[in-house]
Design a protein around this nucleic acid. Sequence first.
DNA 1: GTCTATAGCTTGATAGAC
DNA 2: GTCTATCAAGCTATAGAC
Lengths: 199, 199
Amino acid sequence: MPRNATATRDRLIKAANELFYGDGIRSVSMDAVAAKAGVTKRTLYYHFDSKDDLVAAYLTAQDQPTLAQFARWFDEIDGPLPEKVAGLFSHVATATQHPKWKGCGFLRTAAELASTPGHPALKAGAAHKKRFEAWLAAEIAAAGHNEAGTLARQIVVLLDGAVSMMLVHRDPSYIETAGTVAANLVTQDQTGGTANRAI
Amino acid sequence: MPRNATATRDRLIKAANELFYGDGIRSVSMDAVAAKAGVTKRTLYYHFDSKDDLVAAYLTAQDQPTLAQFARWFDEIDGPLPEKVAGLFSHVATATQHPKWKGCGFLRTAAELASTPGHPALKAGAAHKKRFEAWLAAEIAAAGHNEAGTLARQIVVLLDGAVSMMLVHRDPSYIETAGTVAANLVTQDQTGGTANRAI
DNA sequence: GTCTATAGCTTGATAGAC
DNA sequence: GTCTATCAAGCTATAGAC
């Protein structure tokens, strides 16, 4: 049993992640999170002021690992930009096959907490989605496209739509459909699509 | 106070709709639904076996009105198919400006109940989304396109993605972006885009 | 920092009268 | 079909000891 505050906090966030992502926010009790982390509820409330605070910490902790995962997928794929974009959707399609997959945690939290506009977890989720869009725009710009911002926005709409439809129908063909459209948008963008990023 | 069973049941579903859509499923109690409908909880449990049963009835009741609303919007718009599709997104963008708008009730329910796979409300939501896609495919086919099924699927992904991003960022420009992409997909589909639906 | 114990309230669902 | 009354369990959060 670690007596280190940071280690305990990390275990609490890890437990919160597994439970909140797995079962949803409101259906998971603070008792359950504390029990999963192996501490009492009093310790949980020592590290987090409230459940809302814990939910925000859980989503914030998912931000960087999620971005890193997408960046890894993107780097893995060889070939021109349209293929890299299509490959991103293929990787997502594969990930959704995992038995524990239950949609995008950021989108699901936005859906469940839609009635509490100022909630800190909603701000964390929106910030993550903006960071993802900005990362994608930077990758597209680096590949020599002038309309990188527009393309990135179109692609995130397709990606989040595909993930939403996958959650509803459990049919990965929606993701393939979206990936094809996204790749075509990149191909059709002729403002700089054929330019070389080198001097 | 109506003593008619159907009228009471309708009032209960109306109350459930306002509360479940407004605040989410798990944060609304059966007490709250009964109180909003002006009956006691015992009466609510006379009409519905359980909360899950009520949630499914709420979503099922939204199916036809939602489809009818989209069909009305679609009919209102004059012009060729790409303009009708773009206009559909514009109507959605306007609807999301309403202060009570809190995303797509079907998607939000799918998100909140993602941990209970066989839930009857999830089946009702998936059936609604399938019906919407089928309606759109039929409209596209009626306009003379051969790839109506593919186009409809691409458009629903864009529409649900746009609505999801609107819920996260509260920025209607995502819907306009998606509408432009959708209209371009219809325009680019040359398999029958210029054919006349008449003999 | 972590514990035991509990306050104070709300929940989904039911018993039984009329 | 609708009522009053209530159960047993769950909830978020806190008091106070060590």
